[in-house]
């Protein structure tokens, strides 16, 4: 079954005097992601990968094209009606620090989304937080530390745990391991693949490492200058 279907997606940026400079960051992109599958998006920096991700998530307004998620056209959704979508599609970035509040302990960082989205009763919260940290293979003693006391790999696991608390159907992973050491990278990728098997999560997996994408993904789209130029 198709989870996400993107048709003729375009996102142009305008800059300069009177916005006369047009940057065609994404220039007519089509793809589909099946439930439980992983699609890879590769290409050199600046080719438009992150813009695709942010536009699909509706963090950016598409210039043209359509985005259909679970059979529903979400291209034109506005304001409040975007909210449930914000749970079902999640994004993880290269720098886990940027997604975590530096003055919040890990415990509270995991608790926050549960409360905001009212995902469980208050007497279930503690167990839920402990389950989450266990799901990403981290020791519970890290719950009471601050982000700066954790390594890059540990932080990326916390971010994954936080995202999982929302039970997403699609996770967009944007260069999530490109700053990590090889051994830590392999741990994180194995974790993501394991979550895909166990929870049926789909991925849009963005990277500039072809070997990583080949290992992780079922289909691979190669982007260049805002367009998909090749499928593998």
């Amino acid at each position: 079954m198709t989870l996400l279907s993107v048709t003729n997606l375009k996102k142009y940026h305008y800059s300069g005097f009177l916005n006369r400079k047009e940057i065609r960051a994404v220039d007519g992109v089509d793809f589909e992601i099946e439930k439980g599958k992983a699609m890879g998006l590769v290409g050199n920096s600046g080719c438009g990968k992150t813009t695709v991700a942010r536009t699909v998530l509706r963090l950016l307004e598409p210039t043209e094209g359509s985005i259909v998620f679970e059979g529903k056209d979400i291209t034109k959704l506005k304001g409040r009606s975007l909210k449930p979508l914000g749970r079902q599609m999640q994004i993880i970035f290269q720098n886990p620090e940027s997604s975590l509040n530096p003055v919040m302990r890990i415990y509270d960082a995991l608790l926050e989304p549960l409360r905001i989205h009212k995902l469980c009763n208050s007497h279930e919260e503690d167990q839920k937080v402990r389950d989450l940290i266990g799901t990403v293979n981290l020791n519970e003693e890290l719950l009471f530390r601050y982000p700066h006391e954790l390594s890059g790999g540990q932080l990326q696991r916390v971010v994954i745990a936080r995202v999982l608390s929302l039970n997403p159907k699609l996770i967009i992973a944007d260069e999530v391991t490109s700053m990590l050491d090889p051994l830590v990278q392999s741990q994180i990728l194995n974790l993501l693949k394991d979550l895909q098997k166990r929870l049926g999560i789909s991925y849009l997996f963005i990277s500039h490492d072809m070997d990583v994408v080949e290992w992780m993904c079922d289909d691979i789209a190669v982007m260049d200058k805002g367009k998909i130029v090749k499928w593998k």
Partner: peptide, 8 residues
Amino acid sequence: LPNKGLRS
């Protein structure tokens, strides 16, 4: 390593 199977 990615080209050696990403064993963790």
